[in-house]
């Protein structure tokens, strides 16, 4: 393996310090767990950048429930997500996804912010957060603003973040009577990138779907929502037929490619399977019957 070369590492203790570095240094890039970034540096050999380690900034880490919203700091690790009772209760899909990311070692190190900002179409945190209506707090030294998480993703490995901006928070509302589920297929059960993944969020009113949201990963250049399908099933009485209809419609939304992890055709087929599983599980979790 070629040794790493050509970068410096700065470890600011405060957010302002980090933002100053991001705006004054040329080629500055955040690092937290390094589980995405270090392996790519190894492949490339060298890259002339300043790595800004956000790991010491306390205010960027942790999970909080406040005013009907869940707030998650970007440096929160997958292990923190997995062991959080608040997440398990309010966003079961996110809890499920954390279970399947990497291995214990990777979950102890990798962060939710890194997972999103790395912008892999297969990022397992993305579909659960998308269906929970998450927003991302983007900040530079000059200003901060919230955007819908969906708008963060621009393409494979590309976000809308400007060179001086970092992700400083995530939030989504907690809704009574809602639940969610995350499903994925990998080359093996655990410890591998998803070939396809899907998350479903539902709100139940008696035996009807008051609200339904579907997000898919690895079937497009970015993680996507399926609004056409959501509109189709929203307000309808829940049934196995409706689940089949939603799954079929999601196959039309999916625009996957062939790659080393799977063919486009396989991904389309699996999209239907995963959407069915996720809809059933999310529905049951709200106490709904089928």
């Amino acid at each position: 393996m070629k040794p790493l070369t050509g970068f410096s590492l700065l470890r600011p203790p405060t957010l302002v310090g980090a933002l100053e570095m991001m705006s004054t240094l040329e080629h500055a890039q955040p690092i937290v767990g390094g589980t995405d970034i270090i392996p790519t540096f190894k492949d490339l050999g060298s890259k002339p950048v300043h790595l800004i380690d956000l790991g010491l900034i306390e205010e960027l880490n942790g999970i909080m429930e406040e005013d009907g919203k869940i707030l998650i700091g970007p440096t929160t690790t997958h292990t923190q997500i997995l062991t959080s009772k608040v997440i398990e209760k309010t966003a079961p899909a996110l809890h499920d996804a954390a279970r399947w990311i990497g291995s214990v070692q990777i979950r102890n190190r990798g962060t939710i912010g890194g997972n999103l900002c790395n912008a892999s179409p297969a990022a397992d945190s993305a579909p659960p957060l998308l269906v929970h209506g998450a927003e991302a707090h983007i900040c530079s030294l000059e200003e901060g603003h919230w955007i819908p998480l969906l708008e963060l993703f621009k393409g494979p490995k590309m976000t809308v973040l400007k060179p001086n901006e970092i992700l400083i928070g995530l939030r989504f509302p907690t809704i009574a009577g809602a639940s969610s589920s995350f499903q994925r297929i990998g080359r093996r059960k655990g410890f591998t990138l998803s070939v396809v993944n899907a998350a479903v969020y539902v709100e139940r009113k008696d035996d009807a779907l008051k609200e339904a949201r579907i997000a898919l990963g690895s079937v497009a250049p970015t993680p996507i929502r399926a609004p056409v399908v959501e509109d189709k099933i929203r307000g309808k009485k829940m049934s196995e037929e409706l689940i089949d209809e939603a799954a079929e419609a999601c196959v039309e939304v999916a625009k996957p490619i062939d790659d080393v992890r799977g063919t486009a055709e396989y991904r389309k087929d699996m999209t239907a399977v995963l959407v069915k599983r996720a809809l059933r599980e999310a529905w049951r979790r709200t106490g709904g019957e089928l």
Binding site: L9, R11, G34, I38, D53, N108, R109
Partner: peptide, 28 residues
């Protein structure tokens, strides 16, 4: 050296992590 095999596992503050994808100054 890619975080995949676990041969380089160490405990950091008690948590298992793969030392091949951690930069030395990060254990300050």
């Amino acid at each position: 050296e890619q975080g995949e095999c676990g041969a380089c596992t160490v405990l950091i503050d008690g948590y298992p992590m793969t030392s091949c994808i951690i930069l030395a100054p990060q254990v300050e």
